[in-house]
Each structure stands twice: as structure tokens, then as C-alpha cells.
């Protein structure tokens, strides 16, 4: 499996969610001391917040690549209906990279 290192040592969403689950399990089995329990809970709380932030990172953008005049690749927005994802204007979906 290849590189899956997200930016700057931050854990991936999947890893953070897995950690949160482990924390819930450890707290539930009751073997931790009180201080450890509190520390674990605080870490879990941070992880939960991090996961929620991760889910909101993307910005709902639909784009199409185009071969520009000088041969460089350009991006153009494709307008869609936000509730259904239907294409607003078929004119947006045209062109080629060749």
C-alpha cells in the first residue's frame, strides 16, 4: 500500500476515528485509573472534534479541466444544483484535454 501520510503528521480521518473507538473501549472496560480516564477522555474529545473538522474540509466544488490557449491546463467551474447534484447547464460540460 502506498503513501497515505496526510499533511504535517496529522492523523488521517480513519486513524483518528479508530483511536476514538479505542479510547471509548478503554474507558468502558474500566481498568484505567481516574486521572488516566480523564486524560483519555480529553484526548477522545479532541479526536472527535478533529474528525468533525475533517468532514467539513472539502468545499463542494465541481470542476472541469480544459486545454487552454497556450496549451496549459485550465480549470473551469461546473454549476450544479446543490441539493440534487444535477448539472445546471450542459454547456459547462464540454471540451477536451487533447
Amino acid at each position: 500500500m502506498e503513501k497515505k501520510t496526510p499533511a504535517k503528521g496529522k492523523p488521517s480521518f480513519e486513524k483518528a476515528l479508530g483511536e476514538l473507538e479505542k479510547i471509548a473501549e478503554r474507558l468502558e472496560d474500566g481498568s484505567l485509573g481516574l486521572e488516566e480516564s480523564i486524560a483519555e477522555f480529553e484526548r477522545g474529545s479532541r479526536l472527535a472534534r478533529y474528525c468533525r473538522e475533517k468532514l467539513d474540509e472539502a468545499e463542494r466544488r465541481i470542476e472541469i479541466l480544459q486545454k487552454g490557449k497556450d496549451g496549459a491546463v485550465e480549470k473551469r467551474a461546473v454549476r450544479v444544483k446543490p441539493d440534487t447534484g444535477e448539472i445546471d447547464d450542459d454547456e459547462d460540460l464540454q471540451g477536451s484535454l487533447l
Binding site: 472541469i64 479541466l65 440534487t84 447534484g85 448539472i87
Partner: peptide
């Protein structure tokens, strides 16, 4: 693809490389 992806994850980003 756009419809299904947006239904599942409304703030997803999609880039189309138009091909024949």
C-alpha cells in the same frame, strides 16, 4: 457520479478530465 457523490457527501470536490 456527481449525483451519487454529492448525495453521499454534499461538500465533495470533483474534477473532470474530459475524455473521449
Amino acid at each position: 457520479i456527481i449525483k451519487v457523490a454529492m448525495r453521499r457527501f454534499p461538500n465533495i470536490e470533483i474534477v473532470l478530465a474530459p475524455a473521449r
